Amino acid sequence: MKLYQYHHCPYCIRADMVANYKNVPHEKVYLLNDDEQSCFDLIGAKVCPILQFDDGTAMKESLDIVAKLDALGDKAKVISALEDGDKFEQLFVKIKPSMRILTYPRTILIGLPEFETQSARDYFEGKKEKMIDMSFEQATMQSAQHIGIVNAVLAQLPELPINADLGMDDILLFPTLRNLSMVKGLNFKPQTLDYMQHIAKLTNSELYLAQAL
């Protein structure tokens, strides 16, 4: 099997977390961000992640892929049911514009495989500038303001459970925290940071703390 993805994509990391945690044999394929054709050839749309099976068929939608990988993977590796995911979503949805303004300009600067070419970086920048309604240069200049907004929500996070098994709450929450880790100046509480590092290890995933800008 092949798992097509972008390293920075929060939906892609959901699938990648489960593939790693459940020990599903697969090949990771990081597409260039401007490679529309590969996605259209596989599923007829420019979306990721995409799970392609050995017979050539493919599927999309991150949570559908998560469910499929869960079914295919190591039965001893349990994924617990959703408990607090909706509560976390309600916290972060209020600051989604600030999170985008902070992370989008940094995403193309931290050495990710989907941005190895200038055309891939330009493609991403053009699309995301429209989403945030400002240039990346303007967004970067506003960092301090939006770091303050995001820090206020990070301070409200409850103590996050550090369990031996992965849960659906982790699959939904970790990608957001992982992407925020690329922003220098965000204040993760020590317990939140412990949780992030635990989930990264449990799922063989990476945080961006070392590359933070």
Rank of each mutant, 00 (worst) to 15 (best):
D41F: 13
D41E: 14
D41I: 10
L42P: 05
L42Q: 05
I43S: 04
I43V: 15
I43E: 09
I43C: 10
I43Q: 05
G44Q: 12
A45N: 14
A45Y: 12
A45L: 14
A45G: 02
K46H: 14
K46W: 11
K46M: 14
V47I: 15
V47R: 08
V47A: 07
C48R: 04
C48Q: 08
C48N: 02
P49E: 04
I50V: 13
I50C: 08
I50E: 07
L51T: 03
L51N: 09
L51Q: 02
L51F: 07
Q52H: 01
Q52R: 05
F53M: 14
F53S: 13
F53P: 09
F53V: 11
D54R: 02
D54V: 07
D54M: 05
D54I: 00
D55Q: 10
D55V: 07
D55I: 04
D55A: 06
G56D: 13
G56L: 12
G56P: 10
T57C: 06
T57L: 11
A58E: 08
M59L: 07
M59E: 10
E61P: 11
E61C: 10
S62H: 00
S62M: 02
S62K: 02
S62I: 03
L63M: 14
L63N: 10
D64A: 09
D64P: 04
I65D: 05
V66E: 07
V66G: 02
V66T: 11
V66P: 06
A67N: 14
A67L: 13
A67W: 13
K68C: 15
K68R: 14
K68M: 13
L69K: 08
A71F: 14
L72K: 00
L72P: 01
L72W: 02
G73N: 07
G73C: 03
D74Q: 08
D74Y: 15
D74N: 14
D74S: 05
A76D: 12
A76V: 06
K77F: 01
V78K: 07
V78F: 01
V78E: 04
I79K: 10
I79F: 11
S80Y: 08
A81N: 13
A81W: 03
A81E: 15
A81Q: 12
A81L: 10
L82D: 09
L82A: 10
L82V: 09
L82F: 05
E83K: 15
E83W: 08
E83C: 11
D84C: 02
D84G: 04
D84V: 05
D84M: 09
G85T: 11
G85P: 06
G85D: 09
G85N: 05
K87Q: 14
K87L: 12
F88A: 03
E89W: 11
E89S: 10
E89P: 01
E89Y: 14
Q90Y: 09
Q90I: 12
L91T: 11
V93T: 13
K94I: 11
K94L: 10
I95C: 00
I95M: 02
K96V: 05
P97D: 06
P97S: 07
P97T: 03
P97G: 01
P97H: 04
S98H: 01
M99A: 05
R100N: 02
R100P: 02
R100V: 01
I101C: 01
L102H: 08
L102K: 03
L102G: 07
L102T: 12
L102W: 12
T103G: 00
T103K: 00
T103Y: 00
Y104D: 05
Y104C: 00
Y104I: 01
Y104S: 00
Y104M: 03
P105Y: 01
R106C: 00
R106K: 09
